[in-house]
Design a protein around this nucleic acid. Sequence first.
DNA 1: TGCCGCCCTCAGAAATTCCTGAAAAATGCT
DNA 2: AGCATTTTTCAGGAATTTCTGAGGGCGGCA
Lengths: 228, 228
Amino acid sequence: MNPTVLVVEDDTALCELLTWNLSAEGYEVRSTADGEEALLMVREQTPDAIVLDWMIEQVPGIEVCRQLRKDKETAQVPIIMLTARGEEEDMIRGLKTGADDYVTKPFSPRELMARIEALLRRARPSLAGSVLQWGDIELDATSHRVRRGGEPLHLGPTEFRLLRYFMERPNRVVSRQQILDGVWGMDSDIDERTVDVHIRRLRKAINRNGDTDPIRTVRAAGYAMDVN
Amino acid sequence: MNPTVLVVEDDTALCELLTWNLSAEGYEVRSTADGEEALLMVREQTPDAIVLDWMIEQVPGIEVCRQLRKDKETAQVPIIMLTARGEEEDMIRGLKTGADDYVTKPFSPRELMARIEALLRRARPSLAGSVLQWGDIELDATSHRVRRGGEPLHLGPTEFRLLRYFMERPNRVVSRQQILDGVWGMDSDIDERTVDVHIRRLRKAINRNGDTDPIRTVRAAGYAMDVN
DNA sequence: TGCCGCCCTCAGAAATTCCTGAAAAATGCT
DNA sequence: AGCATTTTTCAGGAATTTCTGAGGGCGGCA
């Protein structure tokens, strides 16, 4: 289950170079040369990060960026923009539009790799192997261990993924469908009510000692994990 | 309450330039030329972001970065590293050590500003918009929370959508039909009178403490939410 | 193979919210 | 002041949405 990176680049040689490097780093790579198709691919299966060329066919990169940011589903995807020109204006426009980072060609692949890693560390902490925290709850993604107030908690696999999903998105209301996509996988064909059940199981496992429940149900919207 | 940025830079001229630019952007700025002192300042009052020069007195910037990342309290603070040399190795070391971004001198202040903004947007969503405001009412669309004067308000789904609808259109009179389209959906087949009821429920929920009513009824036209 | 843990589904109960219609109140106009 | 129109109030039933407990099924492991 490696992190997925979507490369949107119409220079075939560069695209292959990136794909090769990313694969070597252990990323799952998908790629396209077309902005329109990129949007479709993101909607179909949200990647963990996007490397997006400014100048691509059909739709300019910045427009792709804007579209992604506009849609709630994809608004949080980390985006690194790539450009040939060193225009300051472009860079600032790109960053203001919602890109997280901006790299000008020519660039060193290693630099790009490092920037992607830094960005993932920030945007998806569990992918970088750090420990997530919420109040007295600690979740270690690499060792699959969860503690509350120092006491180890026993969670099933699904409960673990569910908790991680919430801890990666503190304060954010997510719909059942989003939870299904994120925790079960995009193509899962599971009833939304099932989420309720697992939320309940997770709650029971976490609040065993009458602790405060970190998970808030938002009627007609979904659930959220609030900062305390 | 503006976001606070800590500038760690021993070149006095550059430090002043940064301070001036950041202040102009509305940031609260604190600064020091000394790495040791920087660590103390962070511990005393955690800033929302740090601009950190690689070459500073006493402690090298990368060591400051490492120290900050080691401590749980400060592990999440966004860090942008600044350096004179364009050495690729340095950049990669910096990013691997936990820096979020890495800018080489000479750089444009505007670029740095844009990068800080992008980083804050990622690290502290609450600081970078997404919260609508009207006087003492705050509405956070992503966490579905509403506060008035700091006190949390409990709104039902429809009331929430209704309030958001108004706060997205300050100072604008909207007809009942427009409200139905925007809040209930274009194809809703609901009596216009129903809007009245929900307006009332919303008012009751919002003005619980005898606060001023933000919603103005416009006879024969609809409703509006005025700026205060 | 048999046990065990976990996952998904189902369906009824419970809780909350929403809508409806009509009456009361307020407003504007003559 | 009196009338007409519009807005607000109100309460109960309808409709959603969520919660809960139980049960079958699948797969891992001894």
